[in-house]
Design a protein around this nucleic acid. Structure first.
Lengths: 218, 218, 218, 218
DNA sequence: AATGAATGAGATTTCATTCAT
DNA sequence: CATGAATGAAATCTCATTCAT
């Protein structure tokens, strides 16, 4: 984590450095990104950088943690209003929140998503620690609760289903990122539609169901 | 792509070099993997390497292409027998085939998956070229065909649904990789179950459907 | 030499800083020792350090000078009582005094000895100035005086012999330091024996002398 | 130790690099000496240096080992002719040999001596390993043998006396180095005298012995 | 075709010292 | 007087690539 010296910096300068770092990591990934470039772009001295951070990894860890926290903040605000919703409404809110976050913080969002998906990164475990496990646990608990409520199928493999739901969420983010370089152009309607589509897939699947006896007398 | 000199090598030597390269890329990722290490492990001279390949990127592109082709081979053998199946049976066969491929080529499979998921890589577009688009096009065509056959919902956003299906497939692979370091230990029953679960999710969703009028007279 | 500001500090703080500096120089030597570490351990600000001392070299010179003075103090107390002793008794007292000093100030003593022995150090001359020359002059005068008294051989190369005596003294210190990490454990008997052995070597050499005519009438 | 690549270099180039390195280490000591300076002076590329050596420590270790071996060669040539001499004649030959070596290799000699005397160097043990212990063992065995032959005093503390003898040898070297910047100017007579003086000190001490009954009848 | 030494730009990091507050 | 952020030169080391043999 950054040293005290970094926290003591004027907010403006701090944010500037952070933004430069996000850009660098987003552009080049962790390995290829360069502290030299970061300090040059930031207009700070190399020595100063090392008075702010332990090193490259420290900076990266900080950026990733900050991203997670920022996202969590986004989502937990949402979720505070959403107790006792069924899982589909909850997921809808979470997916929507994620996309809003993504729209507001496109590089940061891309950075964390990309990092999380990079299966080979030795750093993943070190840096993200238990946050992934926790996220999966959260989903698993939701699933269990809704099974108890008889709202979802009881024959589900819980851990696997949680994993698939995460996969769908990530796919949704990817799709947005791929389609729209400039997220500004997106109107809310468009991504609400995609979220609804994702939720519907999770809820009902894509099969054309046989006509259920509607309007009959049974 | 490799130079003529590489193709002229004895098959055995070629395969040895390829295997070393796969190991290296799997272990370290593209950026951190080292040509020096590869030539040392391979027992070939540095100069020789540059007579076989243009450079690191060329080697990587070659490995990735080879992986795609190998996987496609696997799958197209399957698919030649599967005309006119509905999309769920087809996907089931494809998913199953993918897992078998993954079991037989764990590093190669992990390598391609990981690379595909790394959204920020400048190399992705250059190296994978149209193969992703093609894969999506294939799925989209399947979806269109089954909508026509009235087998799946007609209100789907085709391109997005194709994207989500790919996401589910990737999640399935991930889940297997995470759970089972040594894929050898997996018996077919286990991954058949997971495949079926994935297909069921795609088909029916996870919702507990209301009792359809069973045994009634309608 | 330290600036006025350092002298104005409370004695306690001064001694604390000095102790930290001795530890640092003893542990890492001059080149590798770090002002950053010293100020951190001392709990003073970097800027303060540079208000106390000109820089690293100034601090080092100060510590070394202080060490010499402290040692000289030790020894001159001894020597005030030792006028008109022959050189061997005098050296015995000096060697013994040095070892006591070494026992009481192990790091300080190791620091000065080590520094003096480091022949290549550009700093040696600058920092120790004439103190080595003076020490040699003192010995040379002793030798001259005892030659006059007919107590030692008259065929000695004075300056070289003085140098060798210093060498023996240093060897004695080394031997103690090497053998006994924790000087506390040494009882006085042990180092008195070593001192006597050193003095005897200087006095008589190590040769087995032929029996001198004892009890005969010549 | 240097890599194969260094050994494969033309002898001339190898020696040139070695000489540059000796100069650098002699001038600046291990810590302050700079690989950058060495490669610049040598006219080789930085990368080349790291293809020849593992790093700075590797180079230093190599130089020190080489120095020891070279000196040992010098001395063992001498010693092959000196079996069964008493310890004083043997030491005389060794001291004389060391000075000749020192005259022919002033920097190399100064480098090893200085390094050996630097008590604080963490590297000392790592780099010189058992060679110091072995040298002391050699002396101790000589002493034991000559005690058995009744040629030296039997009341000596063997290990301490060996240590003192080494100290005298080192003092001798120092004295030469200090006095004569340009060792070329030394004629053999001068250092033979100093060696003899050192040996005499070890043998007889510096005391003026009482007249032994000469020519009397006892 | 094979070899492997040579290259040098670029990476991260350290640290004594300065200086504005 | 105290503070500690700013500085930037210099350090060690890496590595893909070239090229003469």
């Amino acid at each position: 984590m950054p040293k005290e010296t970094f926290n003591n910096l004027p907010e403006e300068k701090k944010n500037f450095i952070i933004q430069i770092a996000i850009d660098e990591f987003y552009e080049y990934g962790f390995e290829k990104s360069s502290i030299s470039r970061i300090v040059e772009m930031s207009g700070i001295a190399k020595g100063s950088f090392y008075q702010y951070f332990e090193g490259k990894e420290d900076l990266f860890r900080f950026i990733m943690t900050m991203a997670s926290e920022k996202k969590l903040e986004y989502l937990s605000d949402l979720m505070s209003n959403l107790n006792n919703l069924d899982i589909f409404r909850l997921l809808r809110a979470l997916f929507l929140g994620s996309l809003v976050f993504q729209k507001d913080n496109p590089k940061l969002s891309g950075l964390t998503d990309g990092f999380l998906k990079n299966a080979n990164s030795k750093l993943k475990e070190i840096i993200m620690g238990d946050s992934i496990k926790n996220s999966n646990l959260f989903l698993e608990n939701l699933l269990l609760q809704d099974i108890a409520r008889n709202e979802i199928r009881s024959d589900l493999n819980i851990s696997f289903t949680a994993h698939l739901i995460t996969g769908v969420a990530v796919s949704l983010s990817d799709y947005m990122r791929d389609r729209f370089d400039d997220m500004e152009k997106l109107d809310e309607k468009m991504y609400e539609d995609l979220v609804d589509e994702s939720i519907k897939l999770l809820k009902e699947g894509i099969e054309q169901k046989p006509q259920t006896c509607n309007g009959c007398a049974c």
